[in-house]
Design a protein around this nucleic acid. Structure first.
Length: 121
DNA sequence: AGCGTGACGAGTA
DNA sequence: ATACTCGCCACGC
Protein backbone atom coordinates (compact mmCIF):
# COMPACT_ATOMS: atom_id res chain seq x y z
CA UNK A 1 0.00 0.00 0.00
CA UNK A 2 1.26 3.36 -0.83
CA UNK A 3 1.09 5.81 1.98
CA UNK A 4 0.97 9.29 0.57
CA UNK A 5 -0.44 11.08 3.55
CA UNK A 6 1.45 11.64 6.75
CA UNK A 7 0.52 9.62 9.74
CA UNK A 8 -0.94 11.52 12.63
CA UNK A 9 1.83 12.64 14.94
CA UNK A 10 4.40 12.81 12.18
CA UNK A 11 5.25 15.98 10.37
CA UNK A 12 5.76 16.46 6.68
CA UNK A 13 9.41 16.08 5.90
CA UNK A 14 9.80 19.66 4.80
CA UNK A 15 8.29 20.89 8.03
CA UNK A 16 10.59 18.70 10.01
CA UNK A 17 13.59 20.16 8.23
CA UNK A 18 12.46 23.71 8.86
CA UNK A 19 12.00 23.02 12.54
CA UNK A 20 15.38 21.39 12.69
CA UNK A 21 17.00 24.53 11.34
CA UNK A 22 15.09 26.66 13.80
CA UNK A 23 16.54 24.67 16.64
CA UNK A 24 20.06 25.18 15.37
CA UNK A 25 19.89 28.94 15.68
CA UNK A 26 21.93 29.94 18.70
CA UNK A 27 20.39 32.13 21.41
CA UNK A 28 20.84 35.81 20.77
CA UNK A 29 20.78 35.27 17.02
CA UNK A 30 18.07 35.06 14.40
CA UNK A 31 17.51 33.79 10.89
CA UNK A 32 15.02 35.12 8.41
CA UNK A 33 12.39 32.97 6.76
CA UNK A 34 14.17 33.47 3.50
CA UNK A 35 17.50 32.44 5.02
CA UNK A 36 16.01 29.19 6.26
CA UNK A 37 14.54 28.46 2.85
CA UNK A 38 17.81 29.27 1.20
CA UNK A 39 19.70 27.09 3.57
CA UNK A 40 17.36 24.18 2.94
CA UNK A 41 17.58 24.87 -0.77
CA UNK A 42 13.92 24.18 -0.97
CA UNK A 43 10.72 26.18 -0.83
CA UNK A 44 10.65 29.86 -0.11
CA UNK A 45 10.06 32.28 2.72
CA UNK A 46 6.34 31.81 2.59
CA UNK A 47 6.63 28.09 2.88
CA UNK A 48 8.89 28.44 5.88
CA UNK A 49 6.41 30.89 7.32
CA UNK A 50 3.64 28.41 6.85
CA UNK A 51 5.55 25.73 8.68
CA UNK A 52 6.32 28.08 11.55
CA UNK A 53 2.70 29.13 11.77
CA UNK A 54 1.54 25.55 12.00
CA UNK A 55 4.28 23.83 13.95
CA UNK A 56 6.53 26.61 15.24
CA UNK A 57 5.28 26.23 18.79
CA UNK A 58 7.59 23.26 19.29
CA UNK A 59 10.77 25.21 18.61
CA UNK A 60 12.33 28.61 19.46
CA UNK A 61 10.05 30.36 16.97
CA UNK A 62 11.23 33.82 17.98
CA UNK A 63 14.59 33.13 16.33
CA UNK A 64 12.99 32.88 12.91
CA UNK A 65 12.01 36.38 11.89
CA UNK A 66 11.12 38.67 9.05
CA UNK A 67 13.91 40.16 6.99
CA UNK A 68 12.92 43.68 7.99
CA UNK A 69 13.39 42.90 11.66
CA UNK A 70 9.81 43.49 12.62
CA UNK A 71 8.57 41.58 15.63
CA UNK A 72 6.02 38.88 15.09
CA UNK A 73 2.60 40.55 15.07
CA UNK A 74 0.47 39.14 17.83
CA UNK A 75 3.40 37.80 19.79
CA UNK A 76 5.56 40.89 19.89
CA UNK A 77 5.79 41.14 23.63
CA UNK A 78 6.45 37.45 24.05
CA UNK A 79 9.18 37.64 21.43
CA UNK A 80 10.62 40.78 22.96
CA UNK A 81 10.87 39.05 26.30
CA UNK A 82 12.93 36.29 24.74
CA UNK A 83 15.17 38.76 22.92
CA UNK A 84 15.93 40.66 26.09
CA UNK A 85 16.58 37.42 27.88
CA UNK A 86 19.00 36.28 25.19
CA UNK A 87 20.55 39.69 24.62
CA UNK A 88 19.55 39.64 20.99
CA UNK A 89 20.65 42.89 19.31
CA UNK A 90 17.68 45.22 19.13
CA UNK A 91 17.25 48.57 17.51
CA UNK A 92 15.30 50.81 19.80
CA UNK A 93 12.87 53.17 18.21
CA UNK A 94 14.41 56.59 17.97
CA UNK A 95 11.16 58.34 18.51
CA UNK A 96 10.18 56.94 21.82
CA UNK A 97 6.54 56.46 21.12
CA UNK A 98 4.68 54.16 23.41
CA UNK A 99 3.35 51.30 21.43
CA UNK A 100 6.22 51.59 19.03
CA UNK A 101 8.24 48.53 19.92
CA UNK A 102 11.88 48.08 18.97
CA UNK A 103 12.87 46.03 15.96
CA UNK A 104 15.65 43.56 15.60
CA UNK A 105 19.03 44.86 14.60
CA UNK A 106 19.34 42.51 11.65
CA UNK A 107 22.84 43.59 10.80
CA UNK A 108 24.08 42.17 14.06
CA UNK A 109 21.50 39.56 14.95
CA UNK A 110 21.31 37.75 11.63
CA UNK A 111 22.98 34.37 11.75
CA UNK A 112 24.33 32.96 8.51
CA UNK A 113 24.49 29.39 9.71
CA UNK A 114 28.25 29.44 10.13
CA UNK A 115 29.47 28.20 13.42
CA UNK A 116 30.15 31.57 14.98
CA UNK A 117 28.25 31.33 18.22
CA UNK A 118 30.02 34.25 19.77
CA UNK A 119 31.51 37.63 19.27
CA UNK A 120 28.70 39.90 18.38
CA UNK A 121 28.80 42.65 20.84
C1' DA B 1 -9.36 25.19 -12.87
C1' DG B 2 -9.25 29.88 -11.13
C1' DC B 3 -8.64 32.96 -7.22
C1' DG B 4 -7.57 34.60 -2.68
C1' DT B 5 -4.64 34.26 1.24
C1' DG B 6 -0.43 33.94 4.08
C1' DA B 7 4.30 34.11 10.86
C1' DC B 8 7.75 36.59 3.18
C1' DG B 9 11.20 39.60 0.33
C1' DA B 10 12.87 43.00 -2.64
C1' DG B 11 12.10 46.94 -5.36
C1' DT B 12 9.96 51.43 -6.32
C1' DA B 13 7.43 55.82 -5.33
C1' DA C 1 9.81 56.42 7.50
C1' DT C 2 5.26 54.37 4.95
C1' DA C 3 2.51 52.41 0.94
C1' DC C 4 2.13 49.74 -2.90
C1' DT C 5 3.47 46.14 -6.47
C1' DC C 6 5.16 41.93 -7.98
C1' DG C 7 7.32 37.35 -7.45
C1' DC C 8 7.20 33.34 -4.91
C1' DC C 9 4.77 28.59 -3.57
C1' DA C 10 1.44 25.73 -0.89
C1' DC C 11 -3.51 25.46 0.62
C1' DG C 12 -8.33 26.00 0.67
C1' DC C 13 -12.63 27.38 -1.39
Amino acid sequence: MSEESESAGELPEYAERVLEVAELIPPGRVMTYGDVAEWLEEGGPRQVGRVMALYGGAVPWWRVVRADGQLLPGSELRALGHYREESTPLREASRAAEGHLPRLDMKRARWDGRTRTEAHN
